[in-house]
């Protein structure tokens, strides 16, 4: 079964000119994100697989699927470590 991810419910986003700040109300930590990170987190308001995220990056940015896959994998791993994402219970 393909894992699907979504934003932690205690996450709040503040976009500013394509980038932004992410605030986790539970851990009381905040992070800045670049335009790619903001794009991914906005998509992750709904459950997404890694493939969904890779496809979105390939469509929006001038990157190959391999490059996008590496970026998405790294971003999702980092977000999971910081509890910014959860694995969707319906996956």
């Amino acid at each position: 079964m393909t894992a699907r991810y979504r934003r932690h419910p205690e996450l709040r986003l503040a976009p500013v000119e394509g980038e932004g700040v992410v605030l986790h109300l539970g851990t009381r930590r905040y992070f800045s994100v670049n335009d790619t990170g903001l794009t991914l987190l906005e998509l992750l308001a709904a459950p997404c697989s890694l493939g969904d995220l890779v496809a979105a990056l390939v469509e929006r940015y001038e990157v190959t699927a391999d490059e996008a896959r590496d970026s998405v994998r790294s971003f999702v791993d980092g977000c999971l470590a910081a509890r910014l994402l959860v694995i969707d219970a319906d996956a």
């Binding site: 205690e10 709040r12 503040a14 980038e19 605030l23 109300l25 800045s32 670049n34």
Partner: peptide, 23 residues
Amino acid sequence: RRDTLVELVRWSAWVVLEPELAQ
């Protein structure tokens, strides 16, 4: 702008409290 926002969040300690008012 992004670094400005990060700094503003840093000096707004209460933003992390009361989930319904954070956004």
